[in-house]
Amino acid sequence: MPSLLLYSPGNFSQGGIQMFRMACSQARAVVRAVAVFLTLVAGTAAGTTTINHQYAPATINPGDISRYTITIGNSATVPLLNAAVTVIFPVQTTIAATPNVSNGCSFAGVTATAGDNKVVLTGGTIAQRVGVTDGQCSFQVDVTATAPGNWVATIPANTTPDPLTSGYRAEENSVAIFNTTPANATLSVATLNPPTGAKSFSPSSVRAGDATTLQIVLTNPNTGASIPLTVLTDNLPLLGVNQMTVANPANTSVSCNGSGAVPGSLSATPGAASFSYTGGTLGYNAGGNASCTLTVRVVVPGLSGTSQVFTNSLTSGAIGNTRALTSPAFSGNLTVQTPIGMGKSFSPTTVSSGQASLMTLTLSNLSTSNPLTITSFTDAMPAAL
């Protein structure tokens, strides 16, 4: 071990002072070299490193986006190299459809796949401490969740990460260095009520071949959150051989109210047995009754018998939405009657045996919009006539 003998500078000449300064500089170099030597021999890092993570916002509505941030600190006077981090989220938390990655730690390998529940980072560099300020960098990605609850992600202490194991590791002068305390981050997902629906026909009773207006009202019962919709498909009812279809013209309309409402698009082709609604958003209001109203004209061209009731139903979950809320089933009824009116009379109504009476048959078209073509008519009279 080198030794150093110091003298009081008060006894030095100018040249002696210069020699004293050189000796001090050499001493500092020796101390630094010894520190590095001891670090390498002992396999112990001189600095410490920390890792923390958080969500912003920490509480979201189902299906909303939260910005997830990993922050790494370095107290060493040299950069940390080969930094690696794996975070495996609870299955309820996934990378957003658009990850929107920000790689402030220069990770060479970044795995953050939309729909997956993990982040795998390798080959990062964490800057060294400057003065009294630790080096620091961050990695960010957008995440989402739909299931209500508190979902905790943990980066454990002293754990080497791999694609299946959460952890953090870096290297200081080729010596492995870890976080010594675990880091937890909680994403809370609020509970929302599902959208509801109601159906009605106006008029609710029509003649076969006459159009009626089908109205669907979609309601958001929540007072502080909108519900973005994906798709709603209404398959019109088939009763026996008689199919309800979109009328010509369809005369579709969409109207919405409430904060954040978006009308979306209602697509209905005349003659089709279904129609669809896409891209809308149910707004919200203080009363919990913001809604979107859809209308489309429909018709039942043919009928079996003199009257049939057509039930138009949407099953549970039919109101598709980005919040994964399951809507209850709902339906509406339309009564369809024959457009043929018939009357029969005799004059006189009472006769003696063998005496003639005039029978009058009256056929009428009860439709308000379509002509009625009679193709054939047979009246099977009683045997006595």
Rank of each mutant, 00 (worst) to 15 (best):
G15W: 07
I216K: 00
K199G: 09
G343Y: 14
L238F: 14
V296E: 03
R169G: 03
N158P: 09
A208D: 09
I88Q: 00
T349C: 01
G197W: 06
N150W: 06
M1P: 10
F178A: 03
D142C: 01
D116I: 04
S259W: 14
P57L: 02
L5G: 10
P228E: 11
I216E: 07
F346T: 02
T71W: 03
F20M: 08
C137Y: 12
Y68F: 14
T71D: 08
R67A: 13
S226A: 14
R32P: 08
T160H: 01
N103H: 11
F346D: 09
I65C: 00
L358C: 02
T122M: 02
F107W: 09
T252S: 03
N158H: 10
R21F: 15
N179K: 00
N52I: 15
S304T: 15
P382Y: 10
T362K: 01
D116N: 12
I70G: 04
Y277F: 15
A96E: 04
N251W: 09
S376E: 13
N74Q: 09
P163H: 07
A250N: 11
V132G: 08
A33F: 15
T44V: 12
T154R: 01
T181L: 08
T191V: 14
G73M: 06
M342L: 13
T160L: 04
T219R: 00
V31A: 05
H53D: 15
L6A: 09
H53A: 05
A84G: 13
V78W: 02
R67C: 07
P156T: 08
Y284E: 08
S376V: 13
T360E: 05
I126Q: 00
T322Y: 11
T165P: 05
T213V: 11
N248Y: 14
T368W: 05
P263V: 05
T69A: 04
L81C: 03
Q92L: 03
L239G: 06
A225I: 07
P148W: 11
F139E: 07
I95E: 05
R323M: 13
P195W: 10
V175T: 15
L214C: 04
A112H: 01
T349D: 12
A108S: 13
G302R: 05
